[in-house]
Amino acid sequence: MARRTLELPDSVPLSPIIDLWDQQDPDGPDATGIYDFYRNLADGELTGQKCLSCGKLVFPPQIICPSCNSTELEWVKVPEEGELYAFTELKLGAPIIVENYAPFVIAVARFGNYPENGFQISGMMFDESYEELKIGDRITWDILEIKGPGDKKRYWYYFKKL
């Protein structure tokens, strides 16, 4: 008697859990109240928020100010010029989805007058090596277009040396 078999598909789609840019949607069940952050990136701006009630800067963006619980938050552009605070270059063990770009620099930069009135943000740097950078270098952010998988197009940011 022939053994019963179950035939499975040749491949299964990329699991979203290994996708680094697991951004939410503007509407539907995966909607997020901070979706304007992504719209702003698509429009060319990296933004944080300023609380209209207590005046504190908020990053990453949220729907409620964690300091005063106000829901009145306005988008503010992250200053274009910042300072390289710390950096390394990921040479081993890069996340699967960006393995082909490794090694790349991972940095933390400060924009504005951090921490009182500024932001401290992490970011990738391409076409730069660890050896050529130094703490205190002037840097800027720019928009990164993430193409794929398939027709998908999303926007993120990266840092570059001025």
Binding site: D22, P60, A86, F87, T88, A94, P95, I106, W156
Partner: peptide
């Protein structure tokens, strides 16, 4: 391990544990 930090904002920049602690060491 990228999910251990804030996945949407630091994980997206490849922030696993080794690069993060490398930044701590550098500083």
């Amino acid at each position: 391990m990228i999910n251990v930090g804030n996945r949407e904002f630091d994980g997206a920049n490849g922030f696993t544990a080794p690069p993060f602690f490398a930044l701590v060491a550098q500083r």
